[in-house]
Design a binder for these strands. Sequence first.
DNA 1: CGTGTAAGGAATTCTGACACG
DNA 2: CGTGTAAGGAATTCTGACACG
Lengths: 78, 78
Amino acid sequence: MSQKVMSIGTVRDLTGLTERQIRYYEDRELVFPERSPGGARKFSFEDVERLKEIHMKMKDGFHTFELRKSIAGHQSRT
Amino acid sequence: MSQKVMSIGTVRDLTGLTERQIRYYEDRELVFPERSPGGARKFSFEDVERLKEIHMKMKDGFHTFELRKSIAGHQSRT
DNA sequence: CGTGTAAGGAATTCTGACACG
DNA sequence: CGTGTAAGGAATTCTGACACG
């Protein structure tokens, strides 16, 4: 489940988020997809769950910098 | 694990097969990937395992039409 | 039969920017 | 701050065909 295998379009379909939101959450260091040789983002099922969780918190009024702490602990940025 | 989420390039990397082989095995009805709106194949982790199994059998001298029976039973073509 | 390859096209994804608030 | 969008380019995938054996 932690294997990075899906492209952003698949993640969009699975989470219901827009590509823009997914890229932004990555920019805010809330998720850490890998990259294909060509530069395309690759996400895992865990990332999908994490993104769903992030979005719910956002709807509850949290900001990205706050979530970076509360949801932290999954993976660092090795 | 049965969710169709990876594109053929990812499957290529995970199985070590060539895209040509993967497409051929689909043509021979040994795996049944879904399609994205644009026509791109989408595979599941189960498909990846299945493809590895297929390739091992092939190396043992089996032909695709023989494998369609022996490995059958996973999924039909609904 | 199973697989390689060149060919041309179409869909996918990427980044940086401007916008609004 | 979080997200939408138009812009241009690059990487990915698709199909049908010719090839060899």
